[in-house]
């Protein structure tokens, strides 16, 4: 644990000075500021922010994680020649990459909120921040799995973009197709399962249901509300999000421990 914290400290120190992270924080700051200014309504601004967050965070996290890990390869070799274990190096780098990414998002989103003083929407904003942070760590885990398993940088980056494209965009198309194709059948439960299998959908649904606009989603919305609104549903969906972080993370750790540098 002491090695993890030490490596984390220096990784964090390196990444917070990266122009990418600064740009990322400024991006959320600008978008959040613009939305609060233009809508003049905290809840509308937060809803629009959610739409952006759910697409941008997975994309940036998966690409940043993949490129960062490939670029750190020689440095990792040097670190692995020190008397430290691979597990500590892996978690140190993971946290050192994830914390500044999540921090940049949280910082950029919260600051305009405080500036405009929309404190009546604090609960929703916190939910948005939590979902954003979870999505950051999920897609970072996926990017680590991809880059540890593939030595070829171009191939790894291609995979990362494909995974993002699939989970953030294509998956919804497939869900729509399934809904259309099997419209004569009761689909509520399969839809629930399909939503649980995609972290982006899960984040979006958890947010929308808290927003109390599930009525707009008709009968399916009611079923979702019935499931996700209960403690059991919240428990299951939170568990799914946590699994989305830890399954790719531990698969990549396992691979990292056996990797030839």
């Amino acid at each position: 644990m002491k090695f993890i914290l030490k490596i984390f400290k220096y990784e964090l120190n390196n990444i917070v000075r990266s122009r990418w992270i600064i740009f990322y924080a400024i991006f959320f700051l600008a978008v959040s500021y613009a939305l609060f200014s233009f809508t003049g309504d905290g809840s509308k601004a937060i809803l629009s922010l959610m739409d952006i967050t759910i697409i941008i965070i997975p994309l940036i996290s998966v690409i940043f994680g993949t490129i960062y890990l490939y670029n750190s390869r020689e440095f990792m070799e040097m670190m692995l020649c020190q008397p430290i274990d691979r597990r500590s190096l892996f978690f140190g780098v993971y946290l050192g990459t994830g914390v500044p990414l999540a921090g940049a998002f949280a910082f950029g989103t919260i600051l305009p909120f405080i500036f405009f003083g929309s404190f009546n929407q604090l609960g929703l904003l916190l939910l948005l921040i939590v979902i954003g942070i979870i999505l950051t760590f999920i897609f970072l885990s996926i990017s680590f799995l991809i880059s540890v398993r593939n030595d070829d940088k171009v191939k790894g980056l291609g995979f990362s973009i494909l995974v993002w494209l699939f989970l953030a965009i294509i998956y919804d198309g497939i869900v729509l197709f399934v809904t259309y194709f099997f419209q004569d059948y009761p689909l509520e439960k399969p839809m629930l399962v399909l939503s649980l299998l995609n972290p982006v959908d899960l984040g979006r649904i958890m947010f929308l249901l808290k927003f109390d606009i599930s009525a707009l989603m008709g009968y399916t919305g009611a079923v979702f509300q019935k499931f996700f609104g209960t403690d059991f549903g919240i428990g299951i969906s939170s568990l799914c999000l946590v699994l989305w972080i830890f399954i790719p993370l531990f698969l990549s750790l396992n691979c990292f421990k056996r990797k030839n540098f």
């Binding site: 220096y10 990784e11 390196n14 990444i15 000075r17 750190s72 020689e74 070799e77 040097m78 020649c81």
Partner: peptide, 14 residues
């Protein structure tokens, strides 16, 4: 052990 690798790469901002 001290190791000097063939290719050098360190964290850009440190």
């Amino acid at each position: 052990i001290g190791y000097m690798p063939q290719i050098a790469r360190y964290p850009d901002n440190l």
